[in-house]
Computed example of a mutant assay.
Amino acid sequence: ASPSGLCLSQKITAPEGTLLRPSIRAVPSSVVPKGAEVKLYCQGPQGSKSVQLWKDEAFSLQINTSREEAEFRLQRERISAAGSYSCRYWQGLHWSEFSAPLQLVVTGFFSRPSLQVRPSTMVAVGETVTLVCQELINSSFSKLAFFLLKAGMPAPLQHQSPEGKMASFTLPSVKAEDAGNYSCVYSDKANKRASDPSDVLMLEVTGERRHMGVHLPPCPPYMGLWGS
């Protein structure tokens, strides 16, 4: 059946199975403090279409638009706004596939974790860096999720759901663009509320990789075939 506002006489814009997959993004970010206003944008092709927003694999909202991006505004101070979002659109006589999921994290409910770096906050290009995020309050939560954040990025770089109270995030073979300010948060997977961000850790990446081979002494001066 077609969604509300569409009828079977409408022109089919694409055969079944050929609709482009939409994408979803959060503005200003997918990690926001409680009380912040968040807008979710679902991007698809131009033309009249119905767009659905799904949260945690359940239908949430639907709007009609002819723009490339459909805007969904989430209310302020909604704890329940945290979760996994995806979207899809109806065009012609078919639904598109769902977008890749976007995890919306709402922070400010628990004490901040610690963030440490190994081997150092200053590393060379090509080295491997490990960032360790640890929950410090010894909470009774049965399952935690950890998120690694970088300033200027609209979404977490990585996330993990370890068995314990600590997560190790690896940046293999770092590049110059990996330099920057990092922080982390953790959330209770049961209700998805997240902690305050950790203190910021600044990672510096230098241009030369340290060589770990055997250091050889310089060769003696050349004395000729028979010496001197």
Rank of each mutant, 00 (worst) to 15 (best):
Ser2Gln: 12
Pro3Glu: 02
Leu6Arg: 08
Gln10Ile: 14
Gln10Tyr: 11
Lys11His: 14
Pro15Asp: 05
Pro15Gln: 01
Gly17Met: 14
Gly17Arg: 04
Thr18Lys: 09
Arg21Cys: 08
Pro22Phe: 09
Ile24Met: 09
Ile24Pro: 10
Arg25Ala: 15
Ser30Thr: 06
Ser30Asn: 02
Pro33Ala: 11
Lys39Leu: 09
Leu40Pro: 07
Gln43Tyr: 14
Gln43Leu: 15
Pro45Lys: 04
Ser50Asn: 05
Val51Cys: 07
Leu53Asp: 04
Trp54Phe: 12
Glu57Ile: 05
Leu61Thr: 12
Gln62Glu: 13
Arg67Ile: 00
Glu69Arg: 14
Glu71Val: 15
Gln75Pro: 08
Glu77Leu: 11
Ile79Asp: 12
Ile79Ser: 09
Ser80Gln: 15
Ala82Arg: 10
Tyr85Ile: 12
Cys87Val: 14
Trp90Thr: 03
Gln91Leu: 08
Gly92Leu: 11
Leu93Val: 05
Ser96Asn: 03
Glu97Phe: 06
Leu102Ala: 07
Gln103Cys: 04
Val105Ile: 15
Val106Trp: 11
Pro113Cys: 04
Val117Glu: 13
Pro119Val: 11
Pro119Gly: 09
Val123Cys: 07
Val123Arg: 05
Ala124Met: 05
Thr128Leu: 02
Thr128Asp: 15
Cys133Leu: 12
Cys133Ile: 09
Cys133Glu: 02
Ile137Tyr: 05
Asn138Ile: 01
Asn138His: 15
Ser139Met: 10
Phe141Asp: 04
Phe141Glu: 02
Lys143Cys: 04
Lys143Ser: 14
Ala145Ile: 02
Phe146Asp: 04
Phe146Gly: 03
Phe147Gln: 01
Leu148Lys: 12
Leu149Ile: 07
Ala151His: 06
Ala151Cys: 01
Gly152Leu: 04
Pro154Gly: 03
Pro156Asp: 00
His159Tyr: 07
His159Ile: 00
His159Cys: 00
His159Glu: 07
Pro162Ala: 13
Lys165Gln: 13
Ala167Pro: 14
Phe169Pro: 07
Phe169Val: 06
Pro172Leu: 04
Val174Gly: 11
Val174Leu: 13
Lys175Asp: 05
Ala176Gly: 02
Glu177Asp: 12
Gly180Ile: 15
Asn181Val: 10
Asp188Gly: 07
Lys189Phe: 04
Ser195Asn: 01
Asp196Trp: 08
Leu201Tyr: 06
Val205Lys: 00
Thr206Val: 12
Gly207Trp: 02
Arg209Gly: 15
Arg210Asn: 10
Arg210Ile: 12
Met212Lys: 12
Gly213Glu: 11
Val214Ile: 14
Pro220Tyr: 00
Tyr222Pro: 03
Tyr222Ser: 00
Gly224Lys: 03
Gly224Asn: 03
